[in-house]
Computed example of a mutant assay.
Amino acid sequence: MAINDNILIKIRDMKDSLTPVERMVAEYILANMEEIPHLSIKNLAQLSKTSDASVLRFCKTLGYNGYRSFIVSISASLGSMDEEHKDQYTDIQPGDDLSVIISNIARNNSKSIEDTLSVIDRKEVARAVKALRASNRIVFFGIGASGLVCKDAEQKFSRINKMCHAYTDGHIQLTAATLLGKGDVAIFISNSGDTVEILETLEIAKKNGASIIAITKYNKSPLADKSDILLSISTPEVTIRSGAMGSRIAMLTVIDILFAGVASAEYQNVKKYLSKTHNILASKHRK
């Protein structure tokens, strides 16, 4: 589990991918966080209108061996959350004053990054950096807003002379995946984790022996299940498009982490590439 592990954030993000009965447990916990540490498994089962067995299954789905260790984690999460952190993401309402919009967007983006640090697994990040360092080439796959994150990743890794490319068109992704092989790393970026084009491309990349890294929302999804390395993000539950903004910011943060991890580990080799690319861009600006 992550160093800044917050099980309440994980429950919120995973809620929609749970079974109907497990979701009843999750919704009761999220609505009554403060009282949960004081409840026995039987109490929680009764209050959530489920059963002891259902609560135990829920705990195991979240990665706990039993109810007691789950409750300890809930208590720790409550203790680490100050009043500001307990606030929900703030949706943007039609007709909002511009100053309110500025404040809410900034807060939502900041919270998305904060919460992502609570769900991302540091060991998985280390495995991803190791795989990227050893790769023959790196390919990024994403559709829509996730495709923009892929383009950002391509620009970053190109600067340190990594052979890489971003593919954001569904048909071209299939072709690109067909040409992958052992030693290549394919990074799939999808908030939902169930984008059809992404999953079709993943199947081909996996079949051809590429290592699969997924950047996706913390939940049970086909993309999460089929990846070799899973990098989870946390995103806000809001309706107006600030939700897409939050997921994009979280994904960009993960890309920045991976890039910095690789560049730092190989700094003696890549500093000349960073210097060259900086100088050529600087010379263009002076003209």
Rank of each mutant, 00 (worst) to 15 (best):
N161Y: 10
A76P: 03
H165F: 13
T90F: 07
S118W: 09
L132V: 05
A177T: 00
L179P: 06
A145W: 13
R57V: 05
G95D: 06
D184F: 02
A176E: 12
Q155A: 14
Q93T: 11
V119H: 11
S69P: 08
N109R: 04
D184E: 01
I138A: 10
A134N: 14
D169G: 01
N109T: 03
Y67D: 06
F70I: 01
I189S: 01
V125K: 04
T116E: 01
F70H: 02
Y167A: 00
I138N: 04
C164K: 00
M81T: 07
E154L: 08
A177L: 00
V185L: 04
I160P: 07
S99F: 07
C59N: 00
A128D: 05
S118V: 04
R57N: 08
A153E: 06
S69G: 03
N65A: 06
D87N: 15
S110E: 15
K60H: 06
C164T: 03
I74F: 11
Y64Q: 03
G183K: 00
R127N: 14
Q173K: 07
R57T: 02
S118P: 06
T168M: 11
I74T: 03
F157I: 00
D87F: 12
K86I: 01
G147E: 11
D169L: 02
I120G: 07
S99H: 12
R137T: 02
I120W: 02
A131V: 04
S77W: 01
V72C: 12
M81G: 09
T168S: 08
C150H: 11
N108C: 03
C59W: 00
K60W: 02
L117E: 10
A134C: 09
D91V: 00
L56K: 05
I120S: 10
Q93P: 09
A106W: 01
F58P: 00
I172C: 11
L148Q: 13
R68W: 08
T61F: 13
N109D: 12
E124N: 14
A126S: 14
I74P: 02
A106H: 08
R122G: 08
G142F: 03
S73F: 04
D169R: 10
C59L: 05
I105Q: 09
G170Y: 09
G181E: 02
H171W: 08
